[in-house]
Nucleic acid binder design. Structure first.
Length: 421
RNA sequence: CGGGGAGUAGCGCAGCUUGGCUAGCGCGCAACGUUCGGGACGUUGAGGCCGUGGGUUCAAAUCCCACCUCCCCGACCA
């Protein structure tokens, strides 16, 4: 992409009232824009990051045999009345009547919808297990939206649902999801820790939350300073200032954290209420055993920025960066420099790399500062300082390290350099 | 919903206490010139229902009342 014609509205100052670093940087770097409280637009740069995170999630979900589908967010309230969650989720549910006066809502989550779907198509144990997932917009009229896209009223979630004939199958799928979640967060360069959690409005017995401790967050985790054991959920309250129940040696340190994902062994809460049954090999009717597994996809963007930034801006991990490389020609008036920049741009796209070339006619300082702000991991700086000697500079956004390369080596070595970022 | 703060140009702010003439400043934006490796400089210019509605007054950004919106702290959640 050419910066001059690409929509990246960067800002020097953070908008008033923003507190979280990730919120400020996402706004300043032109990734998101607020429409109203808790409702955000994703601008081209933000959408690129979102897409890369979604790609990672899809790969890991598909790898454990989950199948992607896409459910409606426009939903009849009667499905929610079957489980009673029209009442338990009443606070956050956005409800309205359609033209015929029918009660409708915008889906705050999708357990009822998927159970209704599966009920219609699964009749036999031969069709189980089944694991389905989607990446979808959820609507929750949050009591208090916070920290930009960390808690939004309209947000993107990956939600997966497992359907098994017995508890053993559920436990197996639960473990597979657990493993996939660890991989997803690791690939996003997030230091997530899994803690046992309360099931809350979802229901069921066992559940785990994946938390990333940091400067902000709406949750808290306790971490033992001796054995490293992490605890969350109800334990945060009950064990605060206590000694570690795991090793009995260390004390527990409280840290705020962002909840990235939550997995639940639901059991039969929904299948029973909605009549999702199957026949076993003896012709006996059984209730499907369910699990559900959520990741706050849009929230991950904020969590990554919260974990990877410095005073100058965002430092994208290469796995989720909106571009692989930024090409920064310093002297626009120098035709040799511009030609080389254009050649790199062509070469990189031939190599399958996403490059952003800053072809704006602005001073070097503006380009350097904006480059730091939007945080592309690797930067090729072409300027007269080194151009005359046939060299260009490669700068690592994270370390600040600058390497000089012969101008003809760049295209052949760039992939290797990106790998090492 | 309870408690606190704030709405003045695209963004950041001053002015309000003690009403008064054409509502200012910085950034950004447009044009021209000089600059050109870490947010350059000069000149000129465009851009405002001062959150909304009502009231007080000769006169309201400023005083009074009501409402709306946003942010921060609590309960909820990915």
């Amino acid at each position: 992409m050419r910066w001059s014609s690409y929509f990246i509205p960067t800002a020097k100052e953070a908008p008033v009232g923003t507190e979280a670093v990730s919120h400020q940087l996402l706004l300043r770097a032109g990734l998101i824009h607020m429409l109203t409280s808790g409702v955000y637009s994703y601008l081209p740069l933000g959408l690129r990051v979102l897409n890369r995170i979604q790609d990672i999630i899809r790969e890991e979900m598909n790898a454990i045999g989950a199948q992607e589908l896409f459910l409606p967010c426009l939903q009849p309230l009667e499905l929610w009345q079957q489980t009673g969650r029209d009442k338990t989720l009443a606070e956050v549910m956005i409800r309205f009547k359609d033209k015929r006066g029918k009660d409708m809502c915008l889906g705050p989550t999708h357990e009822e919808i998927i159970t209704d779907l599966v009920k219609d198509f699964v009749q036999s144990y031969r069709q189980l297990p089944l694991v389905l997932y989607q990446i979808q917009t959820k609507f929750r009229d949050e009591i208090r939206p916070r920290f930009g896209i960390v808690r939004a009223c309209e947000f993107i979630m990956k939600d997966a649902y497992s359907f098994d004939r017995d508890k053993k199958g559920l436990e197996r799928n639960y473990q597979l999801m657990y493993g996939a979640y660890e991989k997803i967060f690791k690939r996003c360069n997030l230091n997530a820790i899994a803690v046992k959690a309360d099931s809350g409005a979802m229901g069921g017995d066992i559940s785990h939350e994946f938390m990333v401790p940091g400067a902000i967050g709406e949750d808290a985790v306790l971490i033992c300073n001796a054995c490293g054991q992490a605890m969350g959920g109800a334990q945060v309250q009950s064990l605060e200032n206590g000694s570690c129940p795991q090793c009995a040696k260390g004390t527990l340190e409280k840290k705020v954290a962002i909840e990235l994902g939550h997995i639940f062994q639901l059991g039969t809460k929904y299948s029973q209420a909605q009549g999702a049954n199957f026949l076993d090999e003896n012709g006996q009717q059984q209730t499907i055993i369910m699990g559900c597994y959520g990741i706050g996809v849009s929230r991950l963007i904020a969590a990554v920025v919260e974990s990877h930034n410095d005073a100058a801006g965002i430092i994208w991990p290469k796995e989720v960066a909106p571009f692989d490389v930024e090409i920064l020609p310093v002297q626009m008036a120098d035709s040799g420099i511009m030609e080389l920049a254009e050649n790199y741009y062509q070469d990189l796209s031939r190599l399958g790399l996403e490059a952003l070339i800053d072809d704006r006619d602005v001073t070097a300082g503006v380009k350097f500062n904006d480059a730091d702000l939007i945080g592309i991991p690797l930067r090729i700086v072409i300027g007269k300082r080194t151009f005359a000697e046939g060299k260009v500079e490669i700068k690592n956004r994270r370390t600040g390290e600058v390497m000089k390369l012969g101008k003809d080596e760049v295209s052949s070595k760039i992939k290797e350099l990106i790998e090492k970022v």
